[in-house]
Design a protein around this nucleic acid. Structure first.
Lengths: 342, 342
DNA sequence: ATACCCGATGAATCACTGC
DNA sequence: AGCAGTGATTCATCGGGTA
């Protein structure tokens, strides 16, 4: 980075090591082993070592950015808070933090925490007074069905045919990012012809997407095997024609509403008694959205099946609540929530 | 905080000042003014002032937490990265970062950034080796329709009837959090009767939800007008009945039943042959509750692992017995014994 | 040609008790 | 402190093979 000329870069995308601190192996319930990121390049002796490493490359990045350039940094809770604080300390100006919500994250196999279903990106201008940075507001709005693009993005992880693999079928890089993510980053904050720098090039996703979108790019990668794979990959990319229409999938299915949200949102109080249509069966709502009878407890679906002696049941249509003697299906509460969430 | 006894708190929820760095006023497209947070309590002279303030109250929080207590901190990109780095530096151990996705965020009026549609919560245990913290995995799972709860939560901002207002109709507190958010926080990481501390009590959302869910709470608030409003608010809250704040119990909390008791009690005869679900493997029950194949013997767990060539196995769910050609899991025998023990 | 089943897998800070 | 035993624990997606 120090060999490049100052103020020569329009946009930096950086996906640095996350400094995961893993101890021991992790197995799935079926006893198979989770292939963890345990590469040497992700090992640091302490937080302060990691901070020193971060500060060094962030300062180099600052020198390279044009006055109206911006920088994106991606990370997880292991490292992103340290990076964010450093960015602020160095005088970068935060424009947004953006959440990449994964449609298909790895589950939490031992049931000890929430499923870690997102990563965080931070987007900064070079300084507080840099007002001329690129933000393609209208492109983002179109991409989001004519609503302003929000700071939470729903994008699948990189898998299937997009995932680079060696001859043995093993992944070429342990943390390859999806092209859809880089697509949105580059469409939102760069112009055709801009120079993009990726100082942790890895499998070259930034280069592949930049080339396709008519941007120029510089990738820096320490490991020869990754650099070679990236070069091969990018050589096959065809730049899109000038005004090609972009085909981002916007997943606008009907949102799934868990019954627990009805309780959490106060539409039913804990302790409310639900009935089936004939009032033959009843169950009590608890604070976590489970139903309880004398002998069992579980979700509205499990408990519907339980009281009927069936194997499955749609709890939303099975259970009713009492409003002044009249039974109303709980499904109307779901519809109420759904209306708010569109 | 320094007046409270050490290791007396089960869970801390902290919503500290965000250190918003607003320059000048912000107007909507129709020229109306946005009522921004410009209170004196949100003003700090520099990042290092804010860091010193944060470090002071986080250290006090650390002293107050029980060894297996946890702390939640909420913030936006203005302050959350600094708080996260501090938490790590002080030795708290991050369990998750959680994104509160707002269904109805304030739009970005200038069209210069992404709509800031989320805030971030960080959830930590007191130290890396504290593994006995409370996480109501099954309650979270049922709350989310029998799928693991993820780290991204979709919840509306606090508005409408829930929003506290003065006689003049003005907001009683500029950053009142929705009760649904606290509901999920408390249901996920506390038990009924636990003591919750909120060192930035504000309008008292933590207290209101804690009271309703049968938790005890301590709220600390510097501004008399907020403390008064919170007190009034909480006095009207009705606690839910004891049974209704019970959540789904995890299997680990069920009484332990050795497999030998099943044989001892005559639910399976010595000599009975057990199969795995696919009938690929089989083993014979012996009088002491061990299983035997041609080449080995041991507990139901050891033998399940043995025949599969796995490192571990839950024998209760792995082995089945034959009732007139139908395979039934031996786990139903355990449930039978458990039911008798109540 | 289509449907179904099964196995593999992804940036993971992922047990607890009793001797 | 160390070790051994019990037994709790997964979602979305892709690809290949079988019905």
């Amino acid at each position: 980075m120090n060999a490049l000329p100052a103020e020569s870069i329009d946009c930096i995308f950086a996906d640095p090591p996350y400094n995961l601190q893993l101890s021991g192996e992790l197995r799935r319930p079926n006893d198979s082993m989770v292939d963890a990121v345990d590469d040497d390049w992700d090992k640091f002796d302490s937080f302060s070592d990691y901070d020193a490493f971060s500060k060094a490359w962030l300062k180099a990045a600052q020198r390279l950015l044009k006055p109206n350039g911006t920088i994106w940094v991606i990370g997880s809770y292991h490292n992103i808070f340290r990076l964010g604080a450093q960015l602020q300390d160095l005088g970068f100006w935060m424009l947004n933090d953006v959440v990449w919500r994964k449609t298909n994250p790895m589950p939490n196999f031992r049931g000890k925490r929430f499923t870690n279903a997102h990563e965080t990106l931070i987007w900064c201008s070079k300084s507080q007074d840099a007002r001329g940075y690129t933000f393609n507001y209208d492109a983002m709005k179109v991409l989001n069905d004519d609503l302003q693009m929000r700071s939470d993005w729903l994008i699948p992880i990189c898998s299937g045919g997009e995932r680079l693999r060696g001859d043995d079928g093993a992944k070429a890089h342990p943390t390859q990012k999806p092209e859809a993510l880089l697509h949105r980053v580059l469409i939102s904050s760069t112009k055709p012809g801009d120079v993009i720098l990726d100082p942790f090039f890895g499998s070259g996703t930034t280069g592949a997407v930049a080339k396709r979108l008519g941007r120029r790019f510089i990738g820096i990668e320490r490991e020869t095997r990754y650099a070679k794979a990236a070069e091969r990959r990018i050589s096959t990319v065809q730049p899109a024609a000038h005004d090609d229409v972009e085909t981002m999938r916007s997943k606008k299915e009907e949102p799934r509403i868990p019954f627990g949200w009805v309780v959490e949102r106060g539409l039913l109080q804990p302790g409310t008694v639900l009935f089936d249509q004939s009032r033959r069966h009843s169950a009590k709502v608890r604070a976590d959205g489970s139903l309880a009878t004398r002998d069992a407890s579980g979700s509205i679906h499990k408990m519907g099946a339980h009281v009927m002696g069936a194997t499955a049941c749609n709890g939303w249509t099975f259970w009713f609540y009492d409003v002044e003697g009249q039974l109303k299906p709980i499904d109307i509460l779901r519809q109420k929530l759904r209306a708010e969430m569109i």
